[in-house]
């Protein structure tokens, strides 16, 4: 009996370590643009869900892992990785959205997946564009304090052509909100790829809007949060090299 308890206890500890490590794995995958690490993170999360298929937290974990992997594959970019997971991810998220119609984060993640698809083949914008936009809006409506929902909303506004409702200023607002909300919960900042991602995207949005100083501040901020963030270093070098006017 004792052995069983200690075994279960050990399993429990191992389990929570696992949970800890998927977050970290995703962060590493994002930083190093590693397809293998992304796959590992998603596969681990999927396995956890198989053990407890009805656990809503585990369901959201897998949804988040899919969402993260697909965004990661877009950033790399890696078509093969995207192709491998897109249909499973979409199927899974559609179901989650059906089961949890009031979940802003679920809606946002599905919106993001549609957005990724449009990114891969713009023609699909005709089919998925309005779905993606309305899900993104639903996200911030249902969960106005979710950094994830705001981040998806911002991407949606950033990538959607302005004649279809895209708006650079709204995108900036969305990512600023993402950052504010993430920072408002200091405990969540560790190993948080989404937070880091919001900072560099905000920088790029500032650049597009012509606010060079702010863009630089954003990239510098990203490097304070994660000194190993090569992408931010690249963006910072690029913007600094392209003008002699440094303050």
């Amino acid at each position: 009996m004792k052995t069983t308890i200690s075994f279960l206890l050990a399993m429990f500890i191992y389990g929570s370590l696992l949970a800890q490590s998927t977050q970290e794995l995703m962060y590493q995958a994002y930083l190093n643009r590693s397809a293998e690490t992304w796959k590992k993170a998603v596969d681990l999360t999927a396995k956890e869900l198989t053990a407890k298929p009805n656990d809503p937290t585990k369901q959201m974990d897998l949804a988040y892992a899919y969402f993260s992997l697909l965004n990661g594959s877009m950033a790399m970019p890696n078509d093969d990785l995207f192709d491998e997971y897109i249909s499973d991810a979409k199927k899974f998220l559609k179901k989650i959205v059906e089961d949890k119609p009031k979940s802003g984060e679920a809606a946002a993640m599905l919106s993001s997946i549609y957005g990724n698809e449009i990114g891969k083949s713009p023609m699909k914008g005709m089919l998925l564009g309005s779905k993606s936009s309305s899900l993104a809006e639903k996200g911030i409506l249902f969960e106005p304090n979710s950094p994830l929902a705001w981040s998806v909303y911002a991407s949606n506004k950033y990538y959607t052509p302005s004649s279809f409702g895209g708006d650079l200023q709204e995108a900036i607002k969305g990512w600023e909100k993402t950052i504010q909300l993430s920072q408002a919960n200091a405990g969540t900042l560790k190993d948080n790829w989404l937070y880091l991602n919001a900072i560099v995207f905000l920088g790029q949005a500032y650049e597009k809007a012509g606010s060079r100083e702010k863009a630089i501040a954003a990239y510098e901020k990203a490097l304070v949060v994660e000194p190993q963030f090569q992408y931010a270093k690249m963006l910072l070098n690029k913007i600094k090299n392209t003008s002699n006017e440094k303050k």
Partner: peptide, 26 residues
Amino acid sequence: TDLQGNPIPGANIYLLNTTIGVSANK
């Protein structure tokens, strides 16, 4: 920090009209 007291990583602190400045840590 923000108004609620949560730290703001990477904030810029500098003296106006100079090149003297630092960034806040994590």
